[in-house]
Amino acid sequence: MSSETMDAAPQLVPLNAIFSTDFVEILVPVTTANTMNEVAGAVAEHVEGKRVRAQPYPKVVIHKGRKVPGDMTVAEAGFAPLDHVTVEYDTSGAPS
């Protein structure tokens, strides 16, 4: 990433998102500076505890079939406006 890109002010990137088992796709405004943890929280805010039961697990963003690291920003992940993401509960550390 060039220093020119890193020095730029955060840009709005609206994302199409589905949270866990929800059936409604929502449009969530995030910025290029938001981390995946923040994106997951922004998506969950509209759904968790409303249409989807809240669970005690961390959330992960999935884009084009890959889990995106929680500390990666929208810019670093290369998300474009209106890209589709899914937010799921990460139950990999849950007891079996």
Rank of each mutant, 00 (worst) to 15 (best):
T73P: 02
S96N: 06
A94M: 04
V60S: 12
T32W: 03
A75V: 01
M72L: 04
V28H: 10
G65D: 07
K59Q: 13
F23M: 05
D71P: 02
E48T: 09
V61W: 05
P14C: 13
V60F: 10
V39D: 07
E88I: 02
K50A: 13
T5G: 07
N16F: 01
E88M: 10
Y57D: 09
K64E: 00
Q11P: 00
K59W: 09
K67R: 15
L15Y: 04
E45L: 15
E76W: 08
R51S: 15
A44L: 06
S96V: 06
S3C: 06
V74T: 04
G65Y: 07
T91M: 15
T31M: 01
V68M: 12
R51K: 12
A8H: 04
S20N: 10
M1T: 11
K59T: 12
A75F: 07
A94R: 14
P69N: 11
R51F: 06
E38Y: 06
N34R: 05
A17C: 13
H84Q: 01
V85M: 01
Q11T: 08
E76C: 08
N34T: 06
H84E: 00
A44G: 13
V28L: 09
A94V: 01
A54G: 02
V85F: 00
I26Q: 10
V61P: 07
E48D: 14
Y57G: 04
V39H: 08
E4F: 12
V28W: 06
V24W: 13
D7H: 07
L15P: 08
A17H: 05
E38T: 08
P56F: 06
L12M: 09
M1S: 15
D22M: 03
V47H: 14
P10H: 07
D7Q: 12
V30N: 01
R66V: 14
R66T: 11
L12G: 01
A42H: 04
N34E: 14
D90Q: 12
R51G: 11
D90V: 12
A8K: 13
M36F: 10
D83T: 00
P56N: 08
T31A: 01
Q55G: 06
L12W: 02
P14D: 13
T32F: 01
Q55Y: 12
N34M: 15
V68R: 11
T5H: 11
V52Q: 06
T86H: 05
E88C: 03
M36N: 12
T5V: 14
G78A: 11
Y57F: 15
V61T: 09
E48V: 07
F79V: 01
G49P: 03
E48C: 12
K67Y: 07
S20D: 14
P81Y: 12
I62Q: 05
V68H: 09
E45N: 10
V52T: 09
E45T: 13
T91C: 08
G41M: 03
G70Q: 07
P69F: 06
V24I: 15
E4C: 08
R51E: 14
V68I: 15
V60Y: 10
T73V: 03
S20H: 08
T91I: 13
M72R: 09
N37K: 07
V85N: 00
F79W: 14
V47K: 15
V28D: 11
P81T: 10
A9F: 03
D83P: 00
A75H: 04
